[in-house]
């Protein structure tokens, strides 16, 4: 399904700089990165963070290529060295963990899902979100893209497959979208640095009248 979107709010993060920690999450920048993008998009949790729409009519769709590479590599490297993984790595290993935290903070009780995509993540998550919003008669979708900076493992996979697009450094995009008449967004000249998140970054950075 193709659909136009009204971009109600947006945020794009491309940074290796410090991120506010998320209580209960450690060692990896994946979950703090997701929350930073969502904070930039929705603002601090509060009365109108969802822009006047109820939490049970808001969907969340997260797209990524590899997920939390740091957490998986930390656990795996410890095992390879004869050590046991930290219990914290168990709790945060799946992307549903940080989405659960964000749903709690923002009072989102609608459908939530996470996917791994080849190529431009936008091409997978935007049609998925459009179908979800249309069929379930929802008001809006919080669409998130996240990819950690290249690591030895992901660089190796990307070297063998041109469809695996890595960002220049840690990258995340959050968009609050509603069905609308918008088309392809021409903006976001620096979007290529977002790798597989470039399509989402363009949508986030496009001029308001182009969305």
């Amino acid at each position: 399904m193709t659909a136009g979107w009204q971009v109600v709010a947006a945020s794009a993060v491309l940074s290796a700089g410090p991120l506010p920690p998320v209580p209960g999450f450690a060692h990896s920048r994946f979950s703090p990165l997701v929350r930073e993008a969502v904070r930039g998009c929705l603002g601090e949790p509060g009365a109108d963070a969802l822009h006047g729409r109820p939490g049970d009519r808001t969907a969340v769709v997260l797209g990524t290529g590899f997920g939390d590479v740091t957490t998986h590599d930390l656990a795996s490297e410890r095992l390879a060295n004869g050590l046991l993984p930290s219990p914290l790595l168990f709790y945060q290993a799946v992307p549903t963990a940080i989405l659960g935290q964000l749903c709690h903070e923002y009072g989102i009780t609608g459908p939530v899902t996470c996917v791994s995509a080849l190529g431009d993540v936008a091409e997978s998550v935007l049609p998925l979100a459009a179908t979800l919003v249309a069929v379930e008669e929802l008001a809006q979708a919080l669409v998130i893209g996240v990819e950690l900076a290249p690591s030895p493992r992901t660089v190796r996979v990307a070297a063998g497959d041109p469809r695996v697009l890595l960002p220049r450094t840690d990258a995340a995009v959050a968009l609050l979208l509603r069905p609308g008449a918008g088309g392809a967004a021409p903006g976001g000249a620096g979007a290529e640095a977002f790798g597989g998140l470039a399509g989402l970054a363009r949508l986030a950075e496009a001029p308001e009248d182009a969305r």
Partner: peptide, 10 residues
């Protein structure tokens, strides 16, 4: 149907 608890992570 799909729905979120909006409660705790674990």
């Amino acid at each position: 149907g799909m729905a979120a608890d909006a409660h705790l992570v674990v």
